[in-house]
Amino acid sequence: MRPPGRRDVPTARPALLLLLLSLLGAPRGVGAGVGAPAELRVRVRLPDGQVTEESLQADSDADSISLDLRKPDGTLITFVADFKKDVKIFRALILGELEKGQSQFQALCFVTRLHHNEIIPSEAMAKLRQRNPRAVRQAEEVRSPDQLHMDIAVNFSQGALLSPHLHNVCAEALDTIYTRQEDVLYWLERGVDSSVFEPVPKTSEQVELPHCGQAGDRGKPCACRYSLSLAWYPCMLKYCHSRDRPTPYKCGIRSCQKSYSFDFYVPQRQLCLWDEDP
Rank of each mutant, 00 (worst) to 15 (best):
I120K: 02
D151T: 09
P164F: 05
P10N: 10
G96W: 01
N117P: 04
R129M: 15
G252A: 10
N117D: 15
E205K: 12
Y186P: 00
L69D: 12
D82H: 02
S22Q: 06
Y178S: 00
D8C: 11
G49N: 12
P210L: 14
R41C: 11
R6I: 07
Q130L: 09
V34H: 10
Y239W: 15
P278S: 13
E141W: 11
S122L: 04
R143I: 15
K127A: 05
S64H: 03
F90W: 03
S122I: 06
T179V: 02
L108S: 01
A223C: 10
S163M: 09
E182K: 14
M150W: 03
L166K: 00
D217A: 07
C109V: 04
L185F: 15
L95I: 04
P37Q: 01
S144F: 11
S194C: 08
Q130M: 14
L108Q: 01
P221D: 07
F110P: 04
E118I: 11
E118Q: 08
R7L: 08
Q158K: 03
I119Q: 00
K71R: 15
E99M: 04
V207L: 13
I120W: 02
R190K: 14
G159K: 02
G219N: 14
C235K: 03
R245P: 05
Y226T: 02
L188D: 08
K258W: 03
